[in-house]
């Protein structure tokens, strides 16, 4: 089936199998391998991307469901000149990652979370990231990074 999807501002049309998952479309058709496949069972959140501005798990969507939609992946977060997005910068400064596998999904989940809760409490951050697993950090520095990003004054609402 023919699908037209805008990914990080670039619109392309491709013929895909109807059973193709969105995450495979992003990685294999669009060549954007920043979005990881972790558990493949809607649990770990490593494959989180934004669909029309909201976080979704791209292993649990068909590419055909995203037809006509706008996707943002981790590759779309930094500025074209390489300047990190404020959320990425906060993860960097607060050591919000160790191995980095969960980080792309974590950053996208945070982008969605901060849209819904621009000034979150620590508890709201912890609850808001319940769909993303990290096996390295114990979450503490991720939470610190999210709070720092929220209060950086650099996020466009």
């Amino acid at each position: 089936m023919r699908v037209t999807v805008t990914v990080n501002g670039t619109t392309e049309t491709h013929d895909v199998e109807t059973r193709m998952l969105l995450v495979h479309y992003l990685r294999e058709v669009r060549g954007l391998t920043g979005t990881n496949i972790g558990c493949d069972t809607t649990s770990c959140g490593a494959c989180t991307v934004l669909l029309d501005g909201e976080s979704v798990k791209s292993c649990t969507l068909l590419a055909v469901q995203a037809d006509g939609g706008e996707i943002t992946t981790i590759e779309g977060m930094a500025a074209p000149d390489g300047t990190l997005h404020p959320i990425q910068q906060a993860f960097h400064e607060h050591h919000g990652l160790q191995c980095g596998f969960c980080t792309p999904g974590m950053v996208m989940a945070v982008a969605s979370l901060l849209k819904e809760h621009p000034d979150p409490t620590e508890a709201e951050v912890r609850e808001g990231l319940e769909g993303n697993l990290c096996r390295c950090t114990g979450y503490h520095n991720i939470v610190q990074a999210v709070l720092a990003a929220a209060h950086s004054g650099e996020l466009v609402p």
Binding site: T42, K57, L61, N132
Partner: peptide
């Protein structure tokens, strides 16, 4: 239900 990503869909 589930988590925020699940609740969005």
């Amino acid at each position: 239900v589930g988590d925020p990503q699940v609740r969005h869909r």
